[in-house]
Simulated scan of single mutants.
Amino acid sequence: MRTFWRNGYAATSMNDLVEATGLSRSTIYNSFGGKKTLFALALKEYRRVTTENVAKISRTADVRGSLRSLLLSIVDDELSDHEGFGCFAANSSLEISGRDPELSALVGQHFKRLESGLLRLLKHGQKSGEIPPDRDCKMLSRYFVAVIQGLRVISKGLPAASRKPYLHSIVEASIETV
Rank of each mutant, 00 (worst) to 15 (best):
S24Q: 09
I28V: 03
N30M: 13
N30T: 13
S31M: 09
G33W: 00
G34S: 10
G34D: 13
K35V: 08
K35L: 14
K35E: 08
T37Q: 12
F39K: 12
F39P: 00
F39E: 09
A40H: 13
L43D: 15
K44H: 09
T50S: 06
T51F: 14
T51K: 14
N53I: 11
V54I: 02
S58Y: 02
R59N: 01
V63M: 00
S69W: 15
S69Y: 11
L70P: 10
L70W: 07
L70M: 01
S73R: 03
I74T: 10
I74Q: 03
V75K: 04
V75P: 01
E78L: 13
S80Y: 03
D81H: 07
G84V: 02
F85C: 01
F88E: 02
F88A: 00
F88G: 00
A89G: 00
A90F: 08
L94W: 05
L94S: 06
L94G: 07
I96N: 04
E102R: 07
S104K: 07
V107L: 04
V107I: 04
V107F: 12
G108W: 01
H110R: 12
F111K: 03
K112Y: 05
L114V: 12
L114Y: 05
L114N: 08
S116F: 05
L118I: 13
L118A: 08
L118K: 05
L118W: 12
R120P: 01
R120D: 12
L122I: 05
G125L: 01
S128Q: 06
S128M: 04
S128W: 03
S128N: 09
I131K: 15
P132K: 09
D134I: 08
D134A: 12
K138H: 15
L140F: 13
Y143P: 00
F144L: 10
F144H: 10
I148F: 09
I148H: 12
I148G: 07
I148Q: 10
V153D: 04
S155I: 03
